[in-house]
């Protein structure tokens, strides 16, 4: 009699559910371990292939889904001739300025405020209600208020984006304060550290991973709010470009605008991931 091989006996699901054997020198069981570059490339390629196929075979009208080639052609035209009289790069520049301006402002104010809220019950008590109150409200809902209060100029646009970035940044910094182990804090105190030194040398560095994550989430919200911010009385910007193109049923411009926003946002996210690897290589390691 032959022994049944254990592989067979286990069944497919058991094998899928089990952790994979590691490569030499790798740690067993780290969640999500493994390189995803190839799979990502495949997923992107598949996306474009399906898109191309659908338009090439004429399954949907170009008005609904223009072909990739049409988008590219449109991009070249807009790049050369601009959109509604404004050069393409100026649209990009204006929007980038609004989003990053609001983002930097939100970080400069939000990170210290979040740290302070984590450190001090007084600050937490004071600022928790307003932030938690406005955080779940969609920016479109208070856009009219912004316009009534701050006019249709740059202020209300940047402020709207600022508000959407601000809440996640504050909350991230606030919960980051809790990252330090009490032993690390005690160690500092037992060397005679002041409260400020503990903050500076233990709590802030250990909050870095959460702060960086919060910044990544925050800038994502910023780009999400861009179109809303450029809805009223804009003549420039990527959000404006997408919105006005959609009013004239210029679908290629809409899709192109979406791609440009996505590429800029993704590029910045890659940069933030790079910063994360350089700044906090110890994240989750101790």
């Amino acid at each position: 009699m032959t022994q049944p091989s254990p592989q067979k006996a286990e069944g497919l699901f058991a094998r899928l559910a089990r952790a994979k054997p590691t490569k030499p020198g790798e740690i067993y069981g780290v969640p999500g371990q493994g390189n995803t570059l190839w799979l990502s490339a495949c997923s992107i390629a598949l996306f474009f292939f399906v898109w191309w196929l659908v338009t090439f075979m004429g399954w949907v009208k170009p008005l609904f889904v223009p072909s990739p080639a049409a988008i590219l052609a449109k991009f070249v035209t807009v790049w050369n001739d601009g959109f509604t009289g404004t050069p393409f790069l100026e649209h990009v520049w204006i929007s980038t300025l609004r989003v990053f301006g609001a983002f930097i402002l939100a970080c400069v104010i939000g990170l210290p405020l979040g740290l302070a809220m984590g450190m001090s019950p007084v600050m937490r008590g004071l600022f928790d209600p307003p932030i938690e109150f406005y955080r779940p409200i969609p920016p479109l809902a208070y856009l009219p208020l912004m316009i009534i209060w701050f006019g249709i100029g740059e202020t209300s646009k940047v402020l709207l984006i600022f508000l959407s970035v601000f809440a996640p940044v504050v909350l991230g910094a606030r919960s980051g304060v809790k990252s330090a182990a009490i032993e690390q804090i005690h160690a500092a105190y037992s060397f005679g550290a002041t409260r400020w030194q503990v903050m500076r040398h233990v709590i802030m560095p250990s909050a870095m991973p959460e702060i960086l994550t919060a910044m990544r989430i925050g800038i994502g919200f910023g780009w999400t709010t861009l179109v809303a911010a450029e809805m009223v009385a804009s003549t420039k910007g990527l959000g404006y470009m997408v919105l006005s193109a959609s009013q004239f049923l210029q679908t290629p411009v809409v899709i192109m605008g979406i791609f440009v926003i996505a590429i800029i946002a993704f590029g910045f996210d890659l940069f933030m991931r790079f910063v994360e690897r350089r700044l906090v290589p110890w994240k989750g390691r101790m």
Partner: peptide
């Protein structure tokens, strides 16, 4: 206070500092 130093069982080193800076941490403070 600095007259009493503590060796903890775990979790008390600072992972963003290298070995030398960890050991020198008290002096830095």
């Amino acid at each position: 206070g600095a007259d009493r130093a503590v060796v903890f069982q775990k979790h008390a080193l600072l992972p963003w500092l290298n070995v030398l800076d960890n050991v020198a941490f008290g002096l830095q403070i």
